[in-house]
């Protein structure tokens, strides 16, 4: 399917798709922000970040099922993910800061196995139910006659608010100053008497809470099941690499870039191919190229700027 020539308002459709790309992007940002913070401050590659996303979704589904309140579910998601994150940091991650990336990759890969199968052990093999709250269900009509799901608009709002809040936290608060100091010179802030290990735990829990929030928010329109975190994790890595590792601004720009590329690529590539192929093969070839689009984008960015768009360190 492509943009139909007879379609009454291709511009409105385009606008709707841009909103979709934006919504996908801001959710990726919630994941990517934690990853990039953790890497920036502690120098750690955390493959288990996707598991925290999953924990958030499962906690939200359980609490929503028990209480019926979506707001409580969100709180539970962030709390559960933050607690899991802090625990993991204290027990395992802490021992990995001084290690090279290889050990970190292996250890956090091991954590994925433990979290995924452990969750399946507790919750079983079938997907869990989590739905959007009544207050946010159904579409709204935007200017220009675009009908757009209210919940997705809310996601864009929440995502941008978190981005703004995170920006303020980093630039305006004491914690933010310490985080930035930690990124620049670890020995220095330890020498200044900042309790570095507590700072690390806090940063890790913060990143985890954001991942848990994303898991719960996205789980409501997708499915809550074991293994949901890994595809998002890979995308989040693509995002932070494009943006430049350690940079919150880069994560935001990268996330929106990836969201738009993925969404718009899926629509425009098939119509591009339809100019010189029959509809079925065009749908096929377009879909194939679209599924590779973000990786092509990432490779292109890295070849052009080897440390990402806003990256400083190698």
């Amino acid at each position: 399917m492509t943009l139909d020539e007879t379609s009454p308002m291709p511009l409105a459709l385009l606008a709707e798709q841009v909103l979709n790309g934006l919504q996908f992007g801001v959710m990726l940002f919630l994941m990517a922000a934690g990853l990039t913070l953790i890497f920036g401050v502690m120098g750690l590659i955390n493959l288990a970040h996707g598991s925290l996303y999953m924990i958030g979704a499962f906690a939200a589904a359980s609490v929503a099922g028990a209480t019926g309140s979506f707001l409580l579910a969100l709180v539970a998601a962030m709390t559960a993910a933050a607690v899991a994150g802090a625990l993991v940091e204290l027990v395992v991650i802490r021992r990995l800061y001084a290690r090279d990336h290889l050990d970190q990759v292996l250890a956090t890969f091991a954590l994925i196995l433990i979290f995924s199968e452990g969750t399946r052990w507790v919750f079983g093999s079938f997907p869990l139910y989590l739905d959007i709250p009544d207050m946010l269900s159904g579409p709204v009509t935007l200017p220009g006659g675009i009908e757009y799901p209210r919940y997705r608009l809310a996601l864009i709002g929440i995502g941008l608010t978190v981005a703004l809040g995170l920006g303020l936290l980093i630039t305006r608060t004491r914690l933010g100053i310490r985080i930035r100091a930690g990124e620049n010179d670890r020995e220095m802030i330890a020498a200044l008497g900042v309790d570095i290990s507590r700072l690390y735990t806090i940063v890790f829990a913060l990143g985890a809470a954001l991942a848990g929030l994303a898991g719960a928010l996205v789980g409501a329109i997708q499915s809550v099941q074991v293994g949901m975190g890994e595809p998002v994790l890979i995308l989040a890595f693509v995002v932070i690499v494009i943006g430049g590792i350690g940079s919150i601004k880069g994560a935001l720009v990268g996330a929106i870039l990836v969201g738009l590329t993925d969404t718009l690529g899926g629509i425009f590539l098939p119509s591009l191919f339809r100019l010189f192929l029959d509809p079925s093969s065009a749908a096929n070839a377009g879909a194939s190229l679209a599924s590779m689009a973000i990786y092509i984008l990432m490779a292109a960015v890295l070849i052009w700027r080897p440390t990402g768009l806003f990256g400083a360190r190698g």
């Binding site: 890497f39 990336h101 890595f237 690499v241 599924s291 590779m292 990432m298 440390t307």
Partner: peptide, 27 residues
């Protein structure tokens, strides 16, 4: 192409090339 980058970026760009081939093979 990948050796233009180093460190984590190298890890990730090799991952990206792998994923490209993976999605290509699927379709």
């Amino acid at each position: 192409l990948s050796l233009r980058t180093t460190g984590v970026y190298f890890i990730m760009i090799t991952l990206a090339f792998g994923q490209m081939l993976y999605y290509f093979a699927i379709s």
